[in-house]
């Protein structure tokens, strides 16, 4: 095994008949990382993955997997990748075990090795019970497991999973996520999704894509810190409205606030703070100084979802 990053993408561009799908993409994935490609539909996630899986050529730029060029050394790269395309296409007329065996042999495993690996991945993906069933008769969740087992069967260094949980029910999603998490200990994983919590839960690092470009790349936590401002703080205070206003107006840390009457003497105040500032201790101090009564103080962290919407909504450019 060579050292160096698992995936290296430089100036990757893909143009389909007049439409730019991927626009000068640059990113690196280290060995052992779990990276999520996140973006609205049509952002270029699938195209990027197809290029990495050696299915499509890039128009410009280079992509390397384990130091091997995906265009000129495609055969070597394919041996190292377990790729599950979008919508998880399978030979629906085959039985689970036969299909996995066929795929294992196709990926160059010997008869004995394929038998062994098929048993292992069926166990790993919870398919042992279903090994004789016809794939087309399985539920979608089980079909997804078959796809995942196929991607895993030759024990690849890199797993590329395009929308692995699309179309599943919540329980199945949870099961697939759990499997991906377990896989992350042995493989480098690149997965795509437009479902945010999924990426938030499973990935160590997130690349947010829109219109073929990377808008942000960081850990989910850092993204929240960097882009999330201080979040919204909500407090319920019993005090005269005028006194509250007078007090808040003089505080430099409070960017904006909003006061609405709640039941009794309480007012529900909502504050927004600049990035990196936690308003809660400041507010508590104010309440203490004025001898008001405080019954609630909470901060709503901006979720990845909010960040995503901010970054990718179409009117963002006019805002500058």
């Amino acid at each position: 095994m060579t050292a160096g990053p698992m995936i290296e993408v430089q100036n990757l561009t893909k143009r389909y008949a007049g439409r730019l799908a991927v626009d000068r993409l640059n990113f690196t994935v280290q060995r052992g990382e779990v990276v999520g490609l996140l973006g609205p539909n049509g952002a270029g996630k699938s195209t990027t993955m197809r290029i990495l899986a050696c299915y499509l050529p890039a128009t410009e730029g280079t992509a390397r997997v384990a130091g091997l060029d995906v265009y000129t050394q495609a055969d070597e790269v394919r041996r190292r990748i377990g790729y599950m395309p979008e919508h998880n296409p399978l030979h629906r007329d085959m039985r689970v075990r036969d299909y996995l065996k066929f795929r294992a042999r196709l990926k160059g495993l010997s008869r004995a090795a394929s038998r062994e690996r098929v048993d292992i991945v069926m166990q790993q993906c919870g398919l042992t019970e279903a090994h004789k069933r016809i794939i087309g008769h399985l539920s979608k969740g089980f079909q997804q497991r078959v796809g995942l087992a196929d991607a895993l069967v030759h024990d690849p260094e890199l797993l590329i999973l395009d929308e692995p949980t699309i179309g599943l029910d919540p329980n199945q999603i949870r099961a697939v996520r759990q499997m991906i998490k377990e896989l992350a200990t042995r493989h480098t994983v690149l997965l795509s999704s437009h479902i945010l919590p999924e990426v938030e839960i499973t990935c160590g690092r997130v690349l947010i894509l829109a219109n073929g470009r990377i808008l942000a790349a960081d850990t989910p936590n850092n993204l929240q810190k960097r882009l999330g401002e201080g979040g919204l703080v909500v407090a319920e205070i019993a005090a005269p409205e005028a006194a509250l206003k007078a007090c808040f107006d003089t505080q430099p840390e409070i960017l904006r606030y909003d006061i609405a009457p709640a039941e009794g003497a309480y007012y529900r105040c909502t504050f927004s703070a600049p990035p990196g500032v936690d308003l809660r201790p400041i507010l508590f101090e104010l309440v203490r100084q004025h001898n008001w009564t405080l019954r609630e103080l909470t901060r709503n962290q901006l979720s990845l979802e909010d960040i995503f919407v901010r970054l990718t909504r179409p009117d963002r450019e006019e805002e500058g």
Binding site: Y55, Y83, D150
Partner: peptide, 9 residues
């Protein structure tokens, strides 16, 4: 399935 076929070695 053409995609899974052609991304195998």
């Amino acid at each position: 399935t053409f995609e899974t076929l052609m991304t195998a070695p």
